[in-house]
């Protein structure tokens, strides 16, 4: 290797090294910092008698919303309120007794199964139990 080639390589390598030395911290800076998420498996979603038959309530389940439904038969059901299509928050439609995602009109039955529309999977269903005066919702499994 002659002196000219050595200088070319040395300067070129230094330039690339400097670029990477700036690029790495910049990319690291741009990526979101990881947040510690507290996993909640059980929560009091409502008080007993709070929901009349054929009504629903959106409740906070950790960092995402859940939906508690008191069916017209007086049966309590709970699901994740996040639509499996494009993560809109679903609502309970009292007229039809089904769960509707207003974003793209995806519809689920009271078992959380897809009835119509684009959602590719059923809603995640939760266990519901009565504990004293509280309606407690917990994740399955």
């Amino acid at each position: 290797m002659n002196r000219r080639k050595f200088i070319d390589l040395f300067l070129g390598g230094s330039l690339i090294g400097t670029f990477i030395a700036f690029l790495y911290p910049t990319i690291s800076y741009l990526l979101p910092t990881k947040q510690i998420e507290v996993v909640i498996k059980k929560i009091t979603a409502a008080r007993l008698g709070e929901l009349a038959p054929n009504t629903s309530k959106i409740f906070k389940f950790g960092t995402s919303p859940g939906i508690l439904i008191n069916t017209s038969d007086g049966e309590l059901r709970a699901f994740s309120a996040i639509c499996t299509h494009l993560t809109c928050t679903v609502i309970y439609e009292e007229d039809t007794g089904t769960i509707l995602c207003p974003c793209h009109n995806g519809r689920f039955d009271l078992g959380g199964n897809v009835v119509s529309g684009p959602p590719p999977a059923p809603l995640e269903s939760y266990n519901v139990e009565i504990s004293g005066e509280d309606i407690v919702v917990s994740k399955k499994g």
Partner: peptide, 10 residues
């Protein structure tokens, strides 16, 4: 409100 239902007709 991240914990509100999606409004109808969105």
């Amino acid at each position: 409100d991240p914990f509100a239902a999606t409004p109808i007709g969105i």
